[in-house]
Design a protein around this nucleic acid. Sequence first.
RNA 1: GGCCCCGUCGUCUAGAGGCCUAGGACGCCGCCCUCUCAAGGCGGUAGCGUGGGUUCAAAUCCCAUCGGGGCUACCA
Length: 482
Amino acid sequence: MTPRVRFAPSPTGYLHVGAARTALYNYLFAHHNGGTFILRSDDTDTARGADEFQEDILEHLGWLGLEWDEGTVVGGPHGTYRQSDRYDRYRSVAQALVNSGSAYYSFATAEQLDAFKREAREAGTSPAYDGSLEPSESEVAERLAAGETAVVRFKVPRPGATVFADIVRGDMRFEHAQVDDFVILRSNGTPTYHLASTVDDVDYGITHVIRGEDLLSSTPKHILLTRAMGSDPAIYAHLSLLMGPDGKKLSKRHGDTAMAAYRGAGYLPEAMNNYLALLGWNIGDDETIASLNEMVDRFDLTTVSKNPAVFDPKKLEWMNGVYIRDMDDAEFLEVTLPLVEEVVGRTFSRDDRARYAMLVPLVKERTKLLPEVASQARFLFVDIDEYDEKAWSKVMAVDEGPIALDGAVAALEALDSWTTDGIDTALRSMLEEHELSARKGLQPIRVAISGSTVSPPLFESLEILGRDEALSRIRTARAALS
RNA sequence: GGCCCCGUCGUCUAGAGGCCUAGGACGCCGCCCUCUCAAGGCGGUAGCGUGGGUUCAAAUCCCAUCGGGGCUACCA
């Protein structure tokens, strides 16, 4: 049996990192086992659903490279894979369930339900609505005929229990006394999540349901529903939830949770996938870095951790740096060029581009987040209009400042081969001549050409900047010093 | 309140009775390298929630306890 798994987000928000991890695990499981990864849109919550969210989810799943074999947009044998297109199907299942005695119409009011829960709580028992408010058949007929609206509830068989073997949790058992007669069809005729999701899982031949732990206690409902439809339940695997640094379920108040925010902040999809995979699963052999394909090869759902994991942006950032350093220069140039152009404020000419290409290997290994390249490369393309205040007072307006600058001008003017090596040699002998330490003697030059005490390596920077511009900047700084 | 899940360094984890004076990674600290910043190299800091058992032997098994989390909607 080849597995069929699905990622079924509800478009009630942007794709967040926790959902992305669930999608990733489904993807890894499907591919490892030669199965099918399906994307479905569980949009039964019409009040909250939005096209904007749906698009965001599709967009970022694509960005992560978690392509689906069947489902939304790409299609397949089951239509649009959008629940809002299948209301007739859900309604007919609900009706069939009523006909077979597995479900019933309910007129219970919010007040009645509240009272029921309150009593249960006071008695210290489970608040599960136990069907004692189920109306008689004749009453249903009468009230429906009179135009009253009703919900359809699933009749949970009591006493009894549902047991199942969860791949990550192990053996589960839920007493039916704890499960209430949940609504499957709302009074407006739309299905609830439980019905729609279960019907789809059955109709689409889903073999493994891999989802968040928040659905663990709903699983007996889904199993009961599946059996009532005459089918065998899927195998379930409930993933622990992602937490914020305070140990609470990860949410907006912990900072960014939307995948779009991470993409915008300069994270690479490869790093994101790698990091997310590690939250609850280990590649093995003390390994941390692995490509999507390597992870597919090694993925094993049975070794997934049960503990909730704290999402740690620090490690993600480190990992992003690893992936950035691993990019080849040409690729790095392509993805970062727009970022630099934006900060510089102009579209690059051939010459700009060529000079940036020379700088690329230097900034690449100094970058953890893509946008950082802009501040590192900026000096190459704009005039130095102001010097960092601290840099000026600490390295320029001191005894060594003018000496180093004058020495640099003299040494560089006399230099005939404007190369990193040539500059290196010339400046080092200048240092010796004036008895300056490398630190004291070179920092003023760095500040003069970049405006800051932090820049890419000096000799290379000077070479790329070009003789005229370099000398001009050093003279300008020297003049500002007198 | 009820039901369910979880509990190894600050964080992600390895560990399925002796291989553990608990391993790896991020972070943090120190040293080295070094023209700054990174990167890199080397070293260090730090953990089995607690209390009882079982056993020659427990991070690993049992019980209790404490802590955290989820669900408890005509949300998903």
